[in-house]
């Protein structure tokens, strides 16, 4: 079976034919499987935003293809439109797109555009709201009266309500405090598990990415620099630092401990694993 998303030799330039022409991404290749959690990391300007806008057909590639279940998303106009609901894209600061009188109606915007029946729309809105933990009372409020974190969750629910097979989020936790971040991340996890959905998340927090992702895609200057599991990627902490990304703090601590001659695992990147490894090391009297 073909993967849910397959990107082949994707290249895109902006302002083609003007003096401002510049290449945003080139020769990008990767695949995403059902139920997989991918994290997209890289600097501002490394092409992450351009890449994700290709996955739901908002941008058209200059060359290369994006395949959804093996089919080119640009094969015909109708198919491209249906892709928008199958590959849901949550932009950065999505709360700035809210416009309806109530949170309920705002979440219903996507399903309504899909041409679903009233009953089906209602069901989807409620289901999406439960994924992001919005109560009925909040759904009847104006989205502009909600707190920052709640607005963000309404906006994410607006995309989840289309029940996409692939959910892409551009820095969904930017600007939130600790509690807000944890809530959003566990909402995303809940959706992934319940629908066996593919998640592609752009993030600047290596700690966040290390906890959640099955695989990481590292972008650099419009190209894919590396793809691999967190342990494969964070093993090359030196290289990550060279391209200005760095590794989670625990990975750094473990690297320093290993430099001190302690035989600890090099692929430590989450807090829970670090604690376990250290305790095992201590009980083993100096052996992991």
């Amino acid at each position: 079976m073909p993967p849910v998303i397959e990107v082949r030799e994707l290249t895109h330039s902006y302002s083609v034919g003007t003096p401002f022409e510049h290449v945003a991404i080139e020769h990008v290749n990767f695949t995403a499987e059902a139920g997989e959690f991918l994290a997209l990391i890289g600097h501002t300007g490394s092409g992450k935003s351009t890449l994700i806008q290709h996955l739901n057909g908002l941008l058209k590639p200059n060359s290369g293809t994006v395949l959804f279940h093996g089919e080119d998303i640009w094969k015909d106009k109708k198919f491209t439109r249906t892709i928008r609901s199958k590959v849901g894209l949550v932009f950065q600061y999505p709360e700035y797109q809210l416009f309806e009188e109530t949170a309920f109606r705002d979440i219903a915007f996507g399903p309504k555009n899909m041409g679903l029946s009233e009953a089906e729309i209602r069901q989807r809105v409620l289901r999406a709201a439960s994924f992001v933990g919005l109560t009925d009372r909040l759904l009847e409020k104006s989205p502009f009266d909600l707190s920052g974190g709640q607005k963000r969750r309404v906006a994410i629910a607006g995309v989840i309500a289309m029940e996409p097979e692939v959910l892409i989020l551009d820095e969904p936790t930017a600007g939130l405090d600790a509690k807000g971040r944890q809530e959003i991340l566990s909402n995303i996890r809940a959706y992934q598990k319940a629908q066996n959905a593919t998640i592609i998340m752009v993030s600047h927090s290596m700690e966040e990415v290390a906890e959640l992702a099955d695989r990481l895609i590292v972008m650099k200057n419009g190209r894919v620099d590396a793809i691999g599991t967190p342990s494969e990627i964070f093993r090359q902490a030196e290289h990550l630092r060279a391209i200005g990304l760095g590794a989670p703090q625990v990975t750094e601590v473990f690297r320093l401990l290993r430099e001190k001659g302690l035989e600890l695992p090099a692929d430590t990147y989450t807090l829970a694993y670090a604690v376990k490894a250290l305790c095992r090391f201590r009980e083993g009297g100096g052996h992991a």
Partner: peptide, 11 residues
């Protein structure tokens, strides 16, 4: 940005 975001919701 807003246009893109609403398009992503099927507008």
């Amino acid at each position: 940005k807003i246009i893109s975001a609403q398009k992503a919701r099927g507008a």
